[in-house]
């Protein structure tokens, strides 16, 4: 029943019918506490969250994502694989060497000759430099090390590149972002550009800015990656999600992350 209603609502949007526009109660643009979460017209998902969810993120202790940061910190200096190396052996102090790294992924990797997400880059390091097995997608260590690395860029503006060898990936990402899909027959842009800030039934639609990934979601009761979240979006519009780490899912992550250029890294963010 609920699914039917949801599909009907989404179909109404797709048909260009009026959607009830509602002010967004938790957000006051003049609140100085919101300044770090806004860049021009861009708004982090933080500004769409209820006060209790924001409070949970604000404190490094109440933010459950820090369970993963702490885990990743331990992993950084732990040797694994045939080469007997830890991340630290090549990269030194993560607080220095990884600063800023989280702002530029997904990026073109000349060594691999393709676009890589941060998680894919870490797995490349593991297989090629450490002689260790890849971390399984969405496993605890997969998320922990990525969160620890990304957190070193906390507060720095997202700055993914879109030119040079990235251009074809970016163009593909943009095309997919605007492509209608699924039973609801809507594109990413319908929710996150056209209707951001409005309610679709009980859902307050955000701009879909991925500056807080890997992030802890109340719904998941755990932490997860942008790849996982994009697949969740596909489920929600009743479309078949692209496989994890597929070219399609990765270029969508690139395009969505580019949209957040200028917003600060919040990893690990807390979202509904």
């Amino acid at each position: 029943m609920r699914k039917t209603l949801m599909a009907a609502t989404l179909a109404a949007v797709a048909a260009g019918l009026a959607v009830q526009a509602q002010a967004d109660p938790p957000f006051d643009p003049k609140d100085p506490k919101m300044a770090p979460f806004i860049a021009g017209a861009k708004r982090s998902g933080y500004t769409f969250a209820e006060p209790e969810t924001r409070a949970m993120q604000d404190d490094d202790f109440t933010n459950p994502g820090f369970l993963w940061v702490e885990d990743g910190k331990k992993m950084w200096s732990k040797a694994e694989g045939k080469a007997g190396k830890a991340c630290q052996d090549c990269h030194g102090d993560a607080e220095k060497s990884m600063k800023g790294v989280g702002t530029v992924y997904p990026r073109f990797d000349p060594h691999a000759g393709m676009l890589l997400t941060l998680e894919q880059k870490i797995n490349q390091c593991r297989t090629e430099r450490m002689g260790a097995a890849e971390f399984k997608f969405d496993s605890k260590p997969y998320n922990a090390i990525a969160t620890y690395v990304k957190h070193q860029s906390f507060g720095m503006p997202i700055a993914v590149q879109t030119d040079g060898p990235v251009a074809p990936y970016f163009d593909m990402g943009r095309r997919l972002y605007y492509e209608r899909r699924g039973m609801s027959d809507i594109a990413c842009k319908h929710c996150h550009e056209d209707l951001a800030g409005m309610h679709m039934r009980t859902e307050l639609l955000s701009q879909g800015m991925p500056n807080g990934f890997p992030q802890y979601r109340l719904k998941w009761q755990t932490l997860g990656s942008a790849q996982k979240r994009i697949r969740g979006c596909f489920d929600e519009v009743r479309a078949e999600p692209y496989p994890v780490d597929s070219l399609e899912n990765t270029v969508l992550e690139l395009y969505a992350t580019w949209r957040a250029n200028g917003l600060r890294v919040e990893s690990p963010a807390v979202r509904k």
Binding site: F61, T62, P64, L67, D71, Q221, T222
Partner: peptide, 9 residues
């Protein structure tokens, strides 16, 4: 005293 632990519950 603030406490937390990772567990699926």
């Amino acid at each position: 005293v603030k406490t937390t632990i990772d567990h699926d519950m």
